[in-house]
Amino acid sequence: MRHAVAAPVRLLVLGDSLTAGYGLPAEEGFQAKLAAALKAKGADVVLVDAAVSGDTTADAAARLDWALGGGEVDAALVELGGNDGLRALDPKQMRANLTHILDTFQAKHIPVLLSGMIAPPNLGTEYGDQFTAVFTDLGRRPGLIYDPFFLEGLVGHPDLAQADGLHPNAAGVDIEVARLTPIILTLVAQAQAQMKDLPKAGQG
């Protein structure tokens, strides 16, 4: 956590293919469009790309120290879980992985937006309920900003998906960014408050 209030907020995007822009030109991917939307709102934000296509929560947890080691980070967007669901991995392990990730950010005084995921319906109701409960429970952590479903507004709209039926196309990304930008602006404001207040508290 840095302490220079005038500096841009460095937002780490810890995610999988959905935030890595899989299947799209770089300028049409989630991060490029999010950066443009934040700039249009007057927010001074630098995105730090830590999204890797194919990553499970275990993969992201394993590389978290590396992702944080590349420079100062002031806030984080965590978008994970889709690949855990596609591989029918144990929701208990997903919970442990995400808890480790969130604990690490908390220890470093880095505010977080956790964006949730829903399991594929073919895995059954019991698995789906356990999967969803991981995000619902973690979303109640004090100080955490929680968005229940990263793909909200896209499921059931094949015109917003790529040919694989899983990843948003450019129009789908536009919807994601429009929906998430106000939430991320709240995260940015939280980070700016942290950047200002931590030196006074002698923390960091």
Rank of each mutant, 00 (worst) to 15 (best):
residue 193 A to N: 10
residue 197 D to N: 15
residue 83 N to A: 04
residue 155 V to W: 03
residue 152 E to K: 14
residue 156 G to I: 02
residue 27 E to T: 13
residue 118 I to D: 04
residue 8 P to S: 09
residue 200 K to N: 13
residue 174 D to I: 04
residue 101 I to T: 07
residue 126 E to A: 15
residue 137 D to W: 00
residue 65 D to C: 00
residue 93 Q to R: 13
residue 177 V to T: 05
residue 71 G to Q: 08
residue 31 Q to S: 11
residue 158 P to N: 00
residue 181 T to H: 01
residue 168 P to Q: 01
residue 22 Y to M: 08
residue 151 L to S: 03
residue 146 Y to Q: 09
residue 156 G to E: 05
residue 163 A to V: 07
residue 64 L to Y: 06
residue 116 G to T: 11
residue 185 L to I: 15
residue 89 L to G: 06
residue 111 P to Q: 13
residue 47 L to F: 10
residue 138 L to G: 08
residue 132 T to V: 12
residue 178 A to H: 08
residue 48 V to Y: 07
residue 139 G to L: 12
residue 140 R to C: 02
residue 22 Y to C: 01
residue 171 A to N: 08
residue 67 A to M: 07
residue 67 A to L: 04
residue 135 F to R: 12
residue 103 D to E: 15
residue 127 Y to K: 10
residue 167 H to V: 10
residue 72 E to I: 10
residue 145 I to C: 01
residue 182 P to S: 07
residue 165 G to Q: 03
residue 14 L to T: 10
residue 64 L to W: 11
residue 129 D to K: 15
residue 193 A to P: 00
residue 204 G to C: 14
residue 42 G to D: 03
residue 73 V to Y: 00
residue 163 A to K: 13
residue 122 N to T: 09
residue 22 Y to L: 13
residue 105 F to R: 00
residue 171 A to W: 00
residue 110 I to N: 06
residue 62 A to H: 12
residue 116 G to K: 05
residue 142 P to K: 05
residue 98 L to W: 03
residue 23 G to P: 03
residue 56 T to Y: 01
residue 34 L to P: 02
residue 124 G to K: 08
residue 13 V to D: 03
residue 76 A to R: 00
residue 37 A to K: 04
residue 18 L to G: 00
residue 201 A to L: 15
residue 85 G to A: 11
residue 153 G to R: 12
residue 194 Q to Y: 13
residue 137 D to S: 15
residue 113 L to G: 11
residue 133 A to K: 15
residue 67 A to N: 07
residue 87 R to M: 09
residue 127 Y to G: 06
residue 182 P to V: 09
residue 75 A to W: 02
residue 37 A to L: 05
residue 105 F to W: 08
